[in-house]
């Protein structure tokens, strides 16, 4: 069954997408598949997406881990605080 995932982007990534973005995927699937879908939405974002991390419930998740629920995802570009 296809599930709709809500994706929030930050900083430089926002210029490539209308956020929050919704992605439809069949679960379970790897978190990195969300990034692949985002690259299809806007191929120009491919380079920055390759350097992003993924967070769920305020914690980072490995890209290859399996996503089993429709919890919102947060795409975290490389930090530049300080």
């Amino acid at each position: 069954m296809e599930t709709t995932i809500q994706v929030t982007c930050f900083a430089g990534l926002r210029k490539f997408f209308n956020c929050p973005l919704t992605i439809n995927l069949k679960l379970p699937t790897a978190y990195e598949d969300v990034l692949l879908e985002m690259k299809k939405v806007n191929p120009e974002a491919s380079e920055i997406l390759d350097s992003c991390r993924i967070a769920v419930c305020e914690s980072f998740v490995p890209r290859t881990a399996l996503m089993t629920s429709d919890e919102p995802l947060f795409i975290i570009p490389p930090s530049s605080g300080g």
Binding site: S51, F74, I76, P77, P78, S79, S80, G81, G82
Partner: peptide, 25 residues
């Protein structure tokens, strides 16, 4: 650690009217 790990981003604005998102890593 805060600079390289925390989800915080810097947007720099220049006098020539351009701007750029920073990357610490």
């Amino acid at each position: 650690r805060v600079k390289y790990e925390a989800p915080i981003w810097k947007h720099e604005f220049f006098t020539d009217g351009t701007s750029e998102w920073g990357q610490n890593c």
